[in-house]
Design a protein around this nucleic acid. Structure first.
Lengths: 221, 221
DNA sequence: GCAAAAGTGTTGATTTTACACCCATGC
DNA sequence: GCATGGGTGTAAAATCAACACTTTTGC
């Protein structure tokens, strides 16, 4: 089991970026290269519990707001030595959280990955593609965003996750029409350089849900 | 490994139906109940090759036009006895094919399943949901349809797969705009009760492709 | 007042459903 | 001719991107 855990980092900078949690191998094979965190399945747990346990134990990460299965990588020669099958997962950590990490573990921007061990690079790519697709037709963004946020913050999160610019105006309208986000009634204070205070929003639900099921071919009526 | 293999059957009747290929257990546990076909992974094959091999060997099925991974079912108590993990697949067989099947193997309508063994019922459900979702935004229908077909036939296939009525007029327009189907130039003969002969179409590509990537939040430009 | 940031209004394009109407064939 | 099924036209609704304009704040 291996998990690609994503977080949008640098929301307070000019360039918020989608990052993935990686771990540097101390030993051969592939010493020095970067791996996805993971480990072996025990006899008395299912895959999801196992991934949560591994992430808590090995990289001290407990703030996962979303975790889902991706694909199984099963090429007989994907790693040297004994035949190993990897079941991969997508995990998401909300943005304000800054979990403490062990020294060999680090966040890396997904658009600038270091040398990756084995077949872990395509795994990250697969996870990113899944995330991008689901940002469009589900409420999965709840797992990357704070509890309360201004639309401009949400725009930064969506931009980083999707990898392209998103218009704040239209983002707000799309998500409000779909009832994905709700106005909380409170407003943020404006920054030191002025500007109108932003209304704050929250995700309506904090459980994964498909919001826009049919791109076409809807049922009649 | 287990595969939910679907085919639309009964296209020449009033009620074309989506069916799944099941196999009746001869021995305990769960004797007499119906199972998804599958088997064990060998050391020198990956999961996809293994599923194709099992289906060819055990139920003599070679006409799979599409095969993709679904989810891994890993509850430690999902089957009695030694702990077993099931990696599930979605397979699709095009409609005119009528593969010969062993005597303990049969097609069953997905809306009227018999008593299912173990956790195989939710597996079929998961596969069906995946199929329905992908019918909307990909060209996956190619794997259920004949090489050449009239729009009304395609409507029957889509209706059966999706589980609701589909308007032939609009189906044609949506799929033509997306360049999923192409007119072949030939026409069918009209039936014994008359009626205008139908123009025939074929799928433009016979490889899986996403045709409508963004429900919203498209990149700018 | 002025700059900065947030929020609203509006327009046009695209996509999609629903349904009325026309076309080609067998008997 | 007329029933039957195929095909086209069209209008109304929904969705969405783009961008100009207005509002509210700090200094």
């Amino acid at each position: 089991m291996l998990a690609a855990v994503f977080q949008v980092r640098g929301l307070d900078t000019r360039e918020p970026t989608l990052n993935v949690l990686l771990w540097q191998r101390a030993l051969d094979p592939e010493q020095g290269k970067w791996s996805l965190p993971g480990g072996q399945l025990e006899d008395d747990e299912d895959l999801t519990s196992s991934v949560r346990r591994q992430l808590a134990d090995k990289v001290d990460l407990r703030e996962l707001a979303h975790l889902e299965q991706l694909a199984v990588f099963s090429d007989p020669r994907r790693v040297p030595g004994v035949r190993t099958i990897a079941s991969t997962f997508l995990g998401l950590v909300p943005s304000p959280a800054t979990p403490a990490l062990p020294p060999d573990t680090r966040w890396h921007p997904v658009n600038d990955l270091p040398a990756m061990a084995f077949d872990h690079a395509p795994m990250v790519e697969h996870a990113r593609n899944r995330l991008v697709a689901k940002m469009s037709y589900t409420n999965i963004g709840f797992a990357l965003a704070p509890k309360e946020f201004a639309i401009s913050t949400l725009r930064d999160i969506y931009s980083a996750a999707l990898g392209h610019q998103v218009d704040a105006t239209n983002l707000q309208r799309v998500l409000e029409r779909r009832k994905v986000i709700t106005r909380t009634g409170t407003t943020a204070r404006s920054g030191r350089s002025g500007g109108r205070p932003a209304a704050l929003f929250g995700f309506t639900e904090s459980r994964y849900r498909v919001t826009d099921e049919f791109a076409a071919l809807r049922p009649p009526g």
